[in-house]
Design a binder for these strands. Structure first.
Lengths: 340, 340
DNA sequence: AAAACTTGTTTAATCGATTAAACATAATCG
DNA sequence: CGATTATGTTTAATCGATTAAACAAGTTTT
């Protein structure tokens, strides 16, 4: 790589000190700098195509204008959409995003956070994995600004932005029940992650409230890293119970996509044989032969809010802020009886 | 944010110079450093939870172990998959990724590259937009290591990794023709981007070679930023020609997704009324009622190769490398006559 | 025993920008 | 007119790590 021009190069060329060049290019000491010199400096800077070396600036100012983003998996539509929103929001405030995919793996997540800390990011937006409390608490103890997004630990007093998952799941299941479905199953993750626990609890409480006794066989859990087989198996089991379920809730877009692909190749018809409601939307929601009823998370709001909270906390030392936004039930064909 | 421990802190605590601490923690001067001191340094570093300040290191070494990635739009499945692959490949070599979405917008792309240059990234992987040659040439002139991915400028002698788009399109159309379809339309972008031009040329040459006279009305172009309306319109036009097309090539996964969503709500049946072949796969390829025949790009290979070329170029000053890999035609239901 | 290594550690310059404080000169005031 | 203020610019320390070169003290070689 070619040698880059530095403040010194400009200073020498103009015949002034680097301090002056710095003041001019940063529009500091306004009104105190000679017009002729100031213009000359700008001209030379342009000629030499000067660009400020952020590394040097950061070292001195102790600020990198960089935020670390840890998502579950950037190649997943949910993570990718959030990432894009955060990218844009960050850019508007002149921040750049360093990111990493945790793959729902605690060790990997810890490693990523470490790497990004070494890179001196000014703060983090994190979608934490299960068992990452340790790292989160570590950040907290070291007063590193951060915001959790989508997921959070109820026992950790830190900022987060997510939806009210209990309510969302409740709404989804209530909707199924109101449409005449009775034996509602759920496929979720086998994980202690609070936001997913909440979904299960919401599911249970909706059934309870409608006086339906839940059969434990209706609740299927798959690994957070599942590549689909477990989802297929879970579906098969739910649909082949002595008394099969007549509706299923998919607790995430990943589960939903695997599920739909499988259903798409099977004899089971949606919603004739089984109704489906899912969390999160994706192309799948619209492209499946029976467009999918789903809970839409307000991604834009979540991403922008998380970024705002983080930047506040970085720049003005804003305190802890916790937001539980509302998910919206988007009703499509997959949950509505066709024979009515 | 709490004050972080520096080499100096450790040095003071142990009672040695920072130089020695640096040597120990970087495993340099092996065999020349006293065992007791060395162990003490490591111990104290651990106790104080020392993490090397990459900003300071980078300033001195002129290397950030950071690569800049410019994709079209991180929230698009194609970009996101590539990004994930590049992330992993980079991480294996201890690089972190700073990224940005160009939105197919030249100004934005230029701005992003500038920002990342200021951040002193060691190199770039870029999916260039139309009219970004200027910026690309600028990088070249300044000997900034970079690799173009997916797209490239045929006239710029720089490294790139993509597929042979002409051949891929040719293969896709030949497949349609061999399956008895005759009036093949294409929906592509209205852009000078070479890789898309190649797709159109491949399409034309396959038709030509089969002695089919192409009607210009078969070729529809939509804006690179289309939100779908143009795709809908193009589809309507193709399907309502005096002699409608009987097959359509979608030149990208975005077009394909918009197209399928629209077809999904229309009376037209795939492949009975119209066959579909698309570039790139997505969940859409499998979830559409008629699973989609498509050209699969070897994303993993592309991303890993691009990263390798870039790192070679950063670390060993490797020269220009250009790769045109092969796309694979994945045959599914959408292109095969059902009445045969 | 002087010269030549070994081993272990420190000194000090450096990367490029920032910025408080100092300095110099001109303009204004009482 | 001497003091004060305004204007314009420089000095020099600093951020934290790296690293060539110097240094010191012990060992070996001849």
């Amino acid at each position: 790589m070619k040698k880059k021009t530095s403040l010194k190069d400009i200073a020498e060329r103009v015949g002034v000190s680097t301090a002056l060049v710095s003041y001019v290019l940063n529009n500091q000491k306004e009104g105190r700098i000679g017009k002729i010199v100031s213009e000359k400096i700008r001209k030379v800077a342009l000629e030499l195509n000067y660009r400020t070396n952020h590394v040097a600036r950061s070292l001195k100012t102790n600020k990198t204008f960089t935020i670390g983003l840890i998502v579950a998996d950037i190649s997943n539509a949910f993570s990718a959409s959030l990432t894009r929103i955060i990218e844009d929001a960050a850019e508007r405030s002149n921040y750049t995003v360093l990111f990493g995919s945790s793959d729902e793996n605690t060790a990997r997540s810890t490693k990523l956070i470490d790497i990004l800390l070494n890179h001196q990011v000014d703060g983090f937006i994190i979608s934490p994995t299960e068992h990452s409390e340790g790292e989160i608490v570590y950040l907290q103890e070291n007063e590193v600004p951060f915001v959790m997004i989508d997921r959070f630990y109820p026992d950790v007093a830190a900022s987060y932005v997510g939806i009210d998952n209990h309510k969302a799941a409740f709404t989804a299941v209530a909707h199924l029940l109101e449409n005449g479905w009775r034996r509602v199953g759920i496929i979720t993750y086998d994980t202690p992650l609070y936001h997913l626990q909440e979904r299960t609890r919401g599911y249970l409480s909706a059934l309870n409230q409608h006086g339906i006794i839940v059969n434990q066989d209706w609740i299927k859990k798959v690994g957070v890293y599942t590549t689909g087989n477990e989802v297929h198996l879970a579906l098969d089991q739910l649909l082949h119970l002595p008394e099969p379920v007549d509706a299923i809730v998919f607790a995430s877009n990943t589960i939903s996509t695997f599920g739909l692909k499988y259903l798409n190749t099977s004899q089971v018809r949606v919603p004739d044989n089984v109704a489906i409601v899912s969390f999160d939307e994706s192309d799948a929601s619209e492209l499946f032969y029976a467009p999918l009823t789903h809970i839409r998370q307000p991604l834009k709001e979540m991403g922008e809010l998380a970024t705002k909270i983080l930047l506040d906390s970085i720049e003005k030392n804003g305190g802890i802020q916790q937001f539980r936004l509302e998910g919206t039930l988007v009703v499509r064909k997959s949950s509505i009886r066709q024979d009515q």
